[in-house]
Lab assay of single mutants.
Amino acid sequence: MKMAVISEHLGLSWAELARELQFSVEDINRIRVENPNSLLEQSVALLNLWVIREGQNANMENLYTALQSIDRGEIVNMLE
């Protein structure tokens, strides 16, 4: 549920979040190519990849820290 809210509000910031979460330029470009027409779909794809990559370590605290690092703390505030 929280992931959906984050995806809805990320907009163009999804790529900046991807870099903050240590995704490569290739990963970011692949997300763009696979989801060409929708920032929402790109955001969802990023968060899904992050959960798959991090497994047990994919917790909201880590995601909140990354969001705050890219000056998107207002998204965190909405969810708390």
Score class of each variant (00 low, 15 high):
residue 1 M to I: 12
residue 2 K to Q: 10
residue 2 K to V: 11
residue 2 K to A: 09
residue 3 M to D: 06
residue 3 M to P: 05
residue 3 M to S: 06
residue 3 M to I: 15
residue 4 A to E: 10
residue 4 A to T: 13
residue 4 A to P: 03
residue 5 V to L: 14
residue 5 V to K: 07
residue 5 V to A: 08
residue 5 V to Q: 05
residue 7 S to I: 05
residue 8 E to C: 03
residue 9 H to A: 05
residue 9 H to E: 10
residue 9 H to V: 03
residue 10 L to D: 02
residue 10 L to H: 00
residue 11 G to V: 02
residue 11 G to Y: 05
residue 12 L to N: 15
residue 12 L to P: 15
residue 12 L to K: 10
residue 13 S to A: 13
residue 13 S to E: 08
residue 14 W to C: 00
residue 14 W to Q: 03
residue 15 A to F: 12
residue 16 E to Q: 11
residue 16 E to N: 15
residue 16 E to C: 07
residue 17 L to V: 03
residue 17 L to A: 03
residue 17 L to M: 08
residue 17 L to P: 01
residue 17 L to R: 00
residue 18 A to P: 00
residue 18 A to R: 03
residue 19 R to K: 12
residue 19 R to W: 07
residue 19 R to L: 14
residue 20 E to T: 10
residue 20 E to C: 10
residue 21 L to K: 00
residue 21 L to I: 05
residue 21 L to M: 14
residue 21 L to A: 00
residue 22 Q to T: 12
residue 22 Q to A: 12
residue 22 Q to W: 04
residue 23 F to M: 03
residue 23 F to P: 00
residue 23 F to A: 03
residue 23 F to V: 10
residue 23 F to C: 04
residue 24 S to C: 06
residue 25 V to G: 10
residue 25 V to T: 09
residue 26 E to Y: 14
residue 26 E to A: 09
residue 26 E to I: 07
residue 26 E to W: 09
residue 26 E to M: 09
residue 26 E to G: 10
residue 27 D to N: 04
residue 27 D to L: 05
residue 28 I to L: 04
residue 28 I to V: 11
residue 28 I to Y: 05
residue 28 I to S: 02
residue 29 N to T: 13
residue 29 N to H: 06
residue 30 R to E: 07
residue 30 R to S: 10
residue 31 I to E: 00
residue 31 I to P: 03
residue 32 R to H: 07
residue 32 R to P: 01
residue 32 R to F: 14
residue 32 R to E: 14
residue 33 V to R: 14
residue 33 V to P: 02
residue 33 V to E: 13
residue 33 V to M: 13
residue 34 E to Y: 04
residue 34 E to F: 09
residue 34 E to N: 10
residue 34 E to D: 09
residue 34 E to M: 07
residue 35 N to F: 08
residue 35 N to L: 04
residue 35 N to M: 06
residue 37 N to S: 12
residue 37 N to K: 14
residue 37 N to L: 09
residue 37 N to M: 08
residue 37 N to H: 06
residue 37 N to P: 00
residue 38 S to P: 01
residue 38 S to H: 06
residue 38 S to C: 11
residue 39 L to G: 05
residue 40 L to M: 12
residue 40 L to D: 07
residue 40 L to W: 15
residue 40 L to P: 05
residue 40 L to G: 07
residue 40 L to N: 06
residue 41 E to C: 09
residue 41 E to H: 09
residue 41 E to D: 13
residue 42 Q to Y: 01
residue 43 S to H: 04
residue 43 S to C: 04
residue 43 S to D: 04
residue 43 S to A: 12
residue 43 S to I: 00
residue 45 A to D: 07
residue 45 A to E: 13
residue 45 A to L: 03
residue 45 A to P: 02
residue 45 A to V: 04
residue 46 L to F: 08
residue 46 L to T: 10
residue 46 L to G: 00
residue 47 L to V: 07
residue 47 L to T: 03
residue 48 N to T: 04
residue 48 N to R: 13
residue 48 N to E: 05
residue 48 N to C: 04
residue 49 L to I: 12
residue 49 L to Y: 12
residue 49 L to W: 06
residue 50 W to T: 01
residue 50 W to E: 01
residue 51 V to P: 03
residue 51 V to T: 14
residue 53 R to V: 01
residue 54 E to W: 03
residue 54 E to G: 10
residue 54 E to P: 00
residue 55 G to V: 01
residue 55 G to Q: 06
residue 55 G to F: 02
residue 55 G to K: 03
residue 56 Q to F: 14
residue 56 Q to V: 14
residue 56 Q to W: 08
residue 57 N to Y: 15
residue 57 N to D: 11
residue 57 N to R: 09
residue 57 N to P: 12
residue 58 A to M: 15
residue 59 N to Q: 13
residue 59 N to I: 06
residue 59 N to S: 14
residue 60 M to N: 02
residue 61 E to G: 05
residue 62 N to E: 09
residue 62 N to P: 07
residue 62 N to T: 15
residue 62 N to R: 14
residue 62 N to K: 14
residue 62 N to H: 12
residue 63 L to G: 01
residue 63 L to P: 02
residue 63 L to F: 03
residue 63 L to Y: 02
residue 64 Y to W: 04
residue 64 Y to A: 04
residue 65 T to Q: 13
residue 65 T to W: 07
residue 66 A to E: 01
residue 66 A to S: 07
residue 68 Q to D: 11
residue 69 S to A: 12
residue 70 I to G: 00
residue 71 D to C: 10
residue 71 D to N: 13
residue 72 R to K: 10
residue 72 R to V: 00
residue 72 R to C: 10
residue 73 G to P: 08
residue 73 G to Y: 06
residue 73 G to M: 05
residue 74 E to W: 11
residue 74 E to L: 04
residue 75 I to V: 11
residue 75 I to G: 04
residue 75 I to S: 05
residue 75 I to R: 00
residue 75 I to W: 03
residue 76 V to S: 05
residue 76 V to G: 04
residue 76 V to Q: 04
residue 77 N to S: 13
residue 77 N to T: 14
residue 78 M to D: 13
residue 79 L to Q: 11
